[in-house]
Amino acid sequence: MRLLAKDITFKYKDSDQSIFENFTLSINGPGFISIFGFSGCGKSTLARIISGELSPKKGQVCLESVQKILLSYNTERIPGWYSVETHLRSVIEKEREGELKWLLKEFGLWDVIKKRFSRLSMGQKNRVNLLRYLLQDFDCLILDEVLANVDEPSRNHILSLIKKRYPEKLFIYISHNVEEVCIFSKEIVVFPRGIRLKTLKKMKGLDFNGERFPERELLKKKVMEAIGLASIMPQ
């Protein structure tokens, strides 16, 4: 399973400067790969290019053994006239009902399924949104800050659970939380500060799957490495 963004050049219509210039990135799956970088460096734009939502001016995204890519982000909402349960049942195949129930319990959402989306807390909204994506057909799921409003213990539980439950899928996780990114990722793609990106830095993550938490010193080292790479100004 491989995803290759090759020689990508991209510029928003209302901007003078391009975000990517002949930029290349290769991601090998399956597993949990993170994209980390400071705000405004182009992480979400890259996610939208990979998912096909944005078309680059030049270059292309090549896929090997990846048929379906989905992109999810944290401000997504469900239609307001549905309760959580009605919406989920309307967008999930019948044979996944069992998995839905299990995930609702694991995500701590069982008690709120009768409620309207607007009545949920921000963290619950994030979890409902992620849950409905997990129950779709996909090979690669891009998670753009999807758990931004979820408390840390729940976030850790959900990420461990996703990794265990869907080992054959590729997850591209975009986050500002450097510690989380280092703990859970197999590989971390680091966006250096600045614009007109050509290349990205990559580093290994600790690939925690919920069984044995990484040693504090090792985690600290990884965090420093990620921050260091993100702070480098590109030439």
């Binding site: 998912s51 989905l70 992109l71 999810s72 982000y73 401000t75 997504e76 909402r77 409905r132 779709q136």
Partner: peptide, 10 residues
């Protein structure tokens, strides 16, 4: 966009 995105993706 925030509501339609999921339906579009799927």
């Amino acid at each position: 966009k925030d509501v339609e995105h999921f339906f579009k993706q799927t």
